[in-house]
Design a protein around this nucleic acid. Structure first.
Length: 296
DNA sequence: GCCGGTCAAGGTCTT
DNA sequence: AAGACCTTGACCGGC
């Protein structure tokens, strides 16, 4: 069982997700920014490893404008050694990485152009993992996409689109249950069609489900992983007490998290803490796991 | 320095 | 039709 957090570290000064405005684009700016982001990424990973945080989600801004036509730099070649160095560290330490491209990646979009730009964005993320020399357990997670007034047709469109994705994307792609449109059951259906594993998000499941308990849904999600995919990835967050439905709590509630871990006793998976205060909450979660004897 | 408007990109829902 | 929200930040111009 590994636990980690998303994208940036609030303790370190170093940011692995610096970017700039499109209007400010220049080859010099691009290269300087990417060099900084990769240097900081390694620094963050070292921070994490020293403290036992073995899971980390890369920022989608690691390579600014990577999938935009403005970017003509062959960054994969130019920064190959930095990517390789990071990958070697990840492999040596046994850490796990993931990425979660944003809302503009819509594989099942009815607009062909949106699908095309989604491929470019996914390919860029996959290329980072490949440059790092990481195996297929390092995943690229997305949501199913839009409904367009016909959910079953939109699920079917996802299946057809998946089949024509680049192989480098296909083997790393995993689909997460969301909170309004596509539930765990929908992700399981996709898995049955194309074998794509399912990321389980506990809060989304509470907000959108088909009556399954959290534990049963998580067990079903585990069934979509294994082999080269590695362990199930769980996105963990909790509702802000008294906040708007779906609004994340500002920090991890250790008692709630402990209850979640207890409910999932006997099950193995990796946990991505999706909470605002990042490593603070991940470290609190790690303490809970240690007390529960779930990590070394 | 600090504040706040704005930023490549989509889709859904509310007003 | 326009704006909020998701996710959420951080750039960058203006003071």
């Amino acid at each position: 069982m590994k636990i980690g957090y998303v994208g940036k570290n609030l303790t370190l000064e170093c940011s692995a997700s610096t970017t700039f405005r499109l209007a400010s684009y220049s080859e010099e700016r691009f290269c300087a920014t990417l060099e900084n982001n990769l240097r900081c990424l390694l620094e963050i990973l070292r921070f994490n490893h020293e403290r036992g945080l073995m899971f980390f989600r890369l920022s989608s801004e690691t390579v600014p404008f990577a999938s935009h036509s403005v970017c003509t730099v062959d960054w994969g070649t130019r920064f190959a050694s930095q990517f390789a160095q990071i990958g070697a560290y990840v492999r040596e330490t046994g850490m796990r990485l993931s990425a979660h491209p944003g809302q503009f990646v819509v594989v099942n979009s009815v607009q062909e152009k949106v699908f095309e730009s989604s491929i470019a964005e996914l390919a860029y993320h996959a290329a980072m993992f490949d440059l790092m020399g990481l195996d297929d357990s390092h995943k690229l997670q997305i949501h199913v996409g839009g409904v367009y007034g016909d959910k079953q047709a939109s699920l079917a469109r996802f299946v057809e689109r998946f089949k024509v994705l680049p192989e480098a994307v296909q083997r790393r792609l995993v689909v997460e249950n969301d909170d309004r449109l596509f539930s765990a059951a929908d992700c399981l259906w996709l898995h049955a069609q194309i074998g794509v594993p399912m990321v389980f998000d506990n809060l989304h499941h509470e907000l959108l489900n088909n009556g399954e308990s959290l534990r049963d849904a998580l067990i079903a999600a585990i069934g979509t992983w294994g082999g080269k995919h590695g362990l199930l990835m769980v996105d963990y967050s909790s509702q802000e007490i008294g906040g708007r439905i779906g609004k994340h709590a500002p920090t991890l509630d250790a008692a709630l998290f402990s209850a979640f871990i207890d409910e999932m006793r006997g099950l193995d998976f990796d946990i991505m803490v999706e909470i605002k205060d990042k490593e603070v909450s991940a470290l609190r979660g790690l303490e809970v796991l240690r007390e529960a004897g779930r990590v070394g």
